[in-house]
């Protein structure tokens, strides 16, 4: 069995046939070929598979692709690239908030959703927003700093 779905991915309309049980993360990575979205715990705990659904962070590893039919999804590729570095990405680079980089797309997208809602979040608000994103290099203090820098740079 298969189902045709259509959705917007980084502003571009995607029409694709998926299996009813396909996970969104697998469709994004293996079918569409965007590898910025990572697959980690596959339980919704670690945050590396974070994408934005209509602007809000969700876990693509516990979301069926069929569930996002008709919706708007943003992955890290939609935010910026080497030629057009987004200010949040720039802040992460400047502050050295990237070690192995595996958690970084999820961290940055979660930060984007936060800053879209609240331009000047407090430290507590940043920690709360990022509480579902794990950095196993444990570079949290620099990530916090990067979010604050991004908030300043975007102002």
């Amino acid at each position: 069995m298969a189902k045709n779905i259509s959705f917007y991915l980084n502003g571009e309309k995607i029409e694709i046939q998926v299996d009813e049980k396909d996970l969104l993360v697998d469709v994004i990575r293996n079918r569409i070929g965007l590898k910025g979205t990572k697959k980690g715990c596959t339980n919704g705990d670690c945050g590396v598979c974070t994408v934005l659904l209509d602007g809000e962070p969700i876990r693509s590893c516990i979301t069926l692709a069929c569930m996002i039919d008709g919706k708007e999804i943003m992955t890290i590729e939609g935010l910026g690239n080497a030629e057009n570095v987004h200010p949040i990405q720039q802040a992460f680079v400047e502050e050295g908030a990237i070690q192995c980089g595996f958690c970084t797309p999820g961290m940055i997208l979660t930060t984007k959703a936060l800053l879209d809602k609240k331009a000047k979040p407090t430290t507590g608000e940043i920690k709360r927003a990022l509480s579902g994103n794990f950095c196993r290099c444990a570079g949290y203090s620099k990530i916090l700093k990067a979010v604050k820098t991004a908030s300043r740079n975007l102002a």
Partner: peptide, 9 residues
């Protein structure tokens, strides 16, 4: 409960 992205769903 969980984390904000979990609570979104």
């Amino acid at each position: 409960i969980g984390s904000p992205p979990i609570r979104n769903m």
